[in-house]
Every structure is written in C-alpha cells, then in structure tokens.
Simulated assay, not measured.
Amino acid sequence: MTTITKAAAIGGGVIGAGWVARLALNGIDVAIFDPDPQAARKVGEVMEGARRAYRRMAPDGLPKEGRITYAATIAEAVAGADLIQESVPERLEVKHKVLAEIDAHAPAEAVVGSSTSGIKASDMQSAMQRPERLVVAHPFNPVYLLPLVEIVGGEQTSGQAVERARALYASIGMKPVVIRKEIEAFVGDRLLEAVWREALWLIKDDVTTVEELDDIMRYSFGLRWAQMGLFQTYRIAGGEAGMRHFMAQFGPCLSWPWTKLMDVPELTDELVDKIADQSDEQAKGLSIHELERIRDDNLVAMMEALSKENDGKGWGAGALYKDFVERLGETKAKSGEE
C-alpha cells in the first residue's frame, strides 16, 4: 500500500487540525503552516480530543505519534512532504495565493489536496505551474473520525494524481470516493445543503424548533442513513419488489408542492437570532468542547457496533473501522510503541 512518510497541513483551523490529528495519530510527521498566533493552541485542543477518541478505538495502544512541527513559511512546511493538505478559508483569491506558493516549493511527486467544501479544482489550478497534481480532497468534520473523503480532479488533474491521492488517503483509514463529474459542492455538500435549506424554512415558519428538528432526524432516518445510506434504505421500503416498486409508489409525490427547496429563506437578524437562541437552549449549558467529546464518543460507539455486524466482518463504516483499528495495531507493533 502507498504510504505517507511526511505530510504538510497548510491551515490549522477546525478542518486543518482534524487532518493533523488523523495523520499524526497514524504515526506520520506533520508540518503545519498557519499565521494565526493561536494555531498551536487550537491544534492542541483538537489533538487532545482526537487522542481521547483513538484511545477508545484502540485500547491496546496506538502507534508512536507522528511529530508535529510549526513552520515559519509554506516553503518550510511542504519541504519533503508526500501529501500536502490545504485547508485555508473558502475564498478563491486566498486559495490561489496559497496554492501558488505550495506549488513553487513542494516536491515534484507530492499530491496537493484541497479541503475546499465547494470550489472546483479547475478554478484553483490556474494559480499553479503543476496543476496536474491538485485534487479536491473534501473531508467531513471531525476529520480524525469520519472516514469519507471526496476526491475530485480538475480539468488539468492527471489520472495518476487521482489514483495516488486515493491510495494515500486510504492508507490513513479513510474511505476515498472519486466523484465522476466536477461540480461545485461535490456530492456530500449538495445533499447537506438541500436538507439545510429545507430545515431553515421549517424553523423560520415556526413548524418546528431546532431541538425538535434534530430529534426528528436522530430518532428516525438518521439511524437508517448511518448504516445503510439513502438508496439501500428505500430499496427495503419497496418490499419484495425492491426499488422499482418504491419508485412507482412514491415517485409521483415528488411533484406535489411539499417543499420550498428551490427558495432560499433570507437570513435576517430575526431568523439568525431565533436559530441561535433555540440552539443555546438545546445545548443545556454544554460547552462546545463537551459537545465535541459527546459527538466523538457516539461516533466511536456507532462504528464499533457496526464493526461487529455482518458475521463479524463489519458493515459499512464499521467494516472500514475494523480494518483501520487492526492497521493501527500493526503500525504500533512495527513502531515498537508501548
């Protein structure tokens, strides 16, 4: 399997720090560049949470942790790196500036992955002399636990870079999915945006509250999606006749005027205050860090449970989790870490 000997993280915010945690806890050295004077503190807090989650995943011990260093420049950070993960703010002019500098100093064989949530690789490649090695590598938060990474090539991305990226991300326990067509926001965020848009209308129109809406999701279809996704869930809903019957039975309702999906509610101060106030009430005094710990514990527990299903082979994310934990153990044995 293709392995990463050194990685660089350009940007140490929530997503960048999540990448650092996943890489370092896989035993990979990571150099970080982030001009934020609070970067070390922020990354350190994410590392603390990630270590806690990984110790629960692998109670027999983890590999020797990769060394985390803070570089003074992008050039220093990317020197000798196999994988460079760019996680800077979602502004094209910022991406262009950072990617141009990465491109000027990175080793020729390095893969450059952008964590962008919606910008196309083709729109970022114009800043690079070696655009063929840039891929979108879009993860989901928390990066150190959620395994999916959407890989999207641009017009100038080489097939070799896409395949190498797929192998590199798989080597750190991720589930790379190569998106077949380059579109803004890719696939995951397109689906999330549709649900988010409808949810905003339901809150704005006082149909439900923030807490009630979250309960509706987590006590019903959220559980189904977590282990079987959308289409396989609906295949079962079609009974013995499967998906064709489901489509015939429920397809016509798609033309009914149920949804406001094509409209966007204005994010007025009133709506923002309503959502924020309801969210504060829902949290019941729990801090963000406390909620992150609860989230991580729940994610580990769900993946652990799924890892034991399917006659012990694991199911869905649980199968990948099972393989990943075994790989962590093998890496630990090779590193001699106690």
Rank of each mutant, 00 (worst) to 15 (best):
194 A>M: 08
326 E>M: 10
244 R>Q: 13
318 G>S: 14
270 E>V: 09
114 S>G: 07
269 D>N: 13
87 S>Y: 00
152 V>P: 00
136 V>Y: 01
8 A>V: 06
189 D>W: 12
221 F>D: 09
224 R>P: 07
189 D>G: 02
62 L>I: 10
291 L>C: 11
22 R>F: 03
190 R>W: 07
273 D>F: 04
324 F>H: 13
169 Y>D: 01
151 I>C: 10
35 P>G: 07
156 Q>M: 13
33 F>M: 05
119 I>Q: 09
225 W>E: 08
282 Q>A: 15
278 Q>R: 04
273 D>H: 09
47 M>V: 00
244 R>P: 00
321 Y>R: 11
9 A>R: 00
63 P>L: 04
20 V>K: 02
135 V>D: 01
66 G>Q: 05
129 Q>D: 10
319 A>R: 15
179 I>D: 03
36 D>L: 04
158 S>C: 11
193 E>C: 10
17 A>T: 04
84 I>S: 03
74 I>L: 14
275 I>E: 00
282 Q>F: 12
213 L>K: 05
258 W>K: 12
167 A>N: 05
147 P>F: 03
104 A>P: 02
75 A>T: 02
64 K>N: 12
160 Q>V: 11
86 E>K: 07
155 E>A: 14
144 Y>E: 11
103 D>V: 10
169 Y>M: 10
205 D>P: 03
335 S>W: 04
77 A>H: 01
118 G>C: 13
253 C>T: 14
273 D>K: 13
61 G>C: 05
